[in-house]
């Protein structure tokens, strides 16, 4: 009896030791980055990367934010941050709403070929970006909006639409068909049913979709680099430019601070809304 209990306790200790090691293993890179960003340039060069900063200072963060140089521009990642925000907000809003409308139309209105459209969306959701980059560039330059803010927004909306539509279609398919019928008899049309009946019921799934799109679009590097144009480079592209600048001494402390600044917005989004995220994902999954 007691030996059995002791064995259980030893097992527990083993388990927790293992878990702590795994946690450390995964958090060490993050800890190193944080600690490096708080050091001075000299400290970084003279000591090992695991040494903690002697006098933690935010000087590198301030420099990264406001005066780090990419080539000839020395405005810090602030410029990239503002660009990213300008890309993010319309892209997320349009892609989420377009996905919601598409999902609603595909699930509750008898549309000719709805199943074929669904299949297409499903295939599109899994096509790697790289395959269609070149045709897309050609298309946009033919239209004449290549390398502009509208261009990068359109690209994010296009790439976001398949997954968004699937997500919303599965959610709406779980809602009773009779709701739409009742609203039709009440005299509401396609858009009014969407706005007054469906959308108010979609709060959780809207949050999930917004999180998915926000993190996806914020973290995007490739599309921003190709489609945004020089004046609209997102934060990720600018971060890369700072880190790969080859003139003078490499300021690791500034680079790590810039990396953390870039990663911060998605992290904040996760911390604030993780609860809704889990709830929404399961709601969509079970009912779909």
């Amino acid at each position: 009896m007691t030996t059995a209990r002791r064995n259980v306790r030893i097992g527990r200790i083993g388990l927790y030791t293992l878990l702590v090691w795994i946690c450390l293993f995964f958090s060490i890179p993050l800890l190193v980055v944080i600690s490096t960003s708080l050091k001075t340039s000299d400290e970084v060069r003279t000591f090992s990367i695991f040494t903690l900063p002697a006098a933690p200072s935010l000087a590198a963060w301030i420099k990264a934010w406001s005066s780090a140089c990419t080539g000839l521009n020395c405005g810090g990642v602030r410029v990239g941050f503002l660009n990213s925000v300008r890309i993010l907000i319309p892209s997320v809003f349009v892609s989420v709403m377009a996905g919601a409308v598409t999902g609603y139309a595909l699930s509750h209105w008898r549309i000719r070929g709805a199943n074929a459209i669904m299949l297409l969306l499903l295939i599109c959701a899994f096509i790697p970006y790289q395959v269609i980059l070149y045709p897309l560039v050609k298309t946009f330059s033919t239209i004449g909006i290549y390398s502009s803010l509208p261009c990068i927004i359109a690209v994010h909306v296009i790439f976001g639409l398949p997954v968004m539509s699937l997500l919303f279609r599965n959610f709406y398919a779980g809602l009773p068909e009779e709701l739409v019928k009742a609203a039709r008899i009440d005299g509401a049309g396609f858009w009014r049913i969407f706005a007054f009946v469906m959308l108010p019921m979609s709060v959780n799934i809207l949050i999930v979709a917004t999180i998915l799109q926000t993190t996806g679009i914020w973290n995007d590097y490739l599309l921003g680099l190709i489609f945004a144009g020089r004046d609209n480079m997102p934060m990720t592209a600018q971060l890369n430019a700072i880190a790969t600048t080859s003139t003078g001494v490499i300021e690791y402390n500034v680079n790590t601070a810039a990396a953390l600044l870039t990663a911060l917005p998605p992290l904040i989004v996760y911390f604030v809304s993780g609860r809704y995220f889990v709830r929404g994902i399961t709601a969509g999954a079970v009912k779909g």
Binding site: P176, E178, L179, K181, A182, A183, I185, F196, V197, P200, M201
Partner: peptide, 12 residues
Amino acid sequence: AMVFQSYALYPT
């Protein structure tokens, strides 16, 4: 006007 089996009341 119509009354449905599941009532179909607007939940929000």
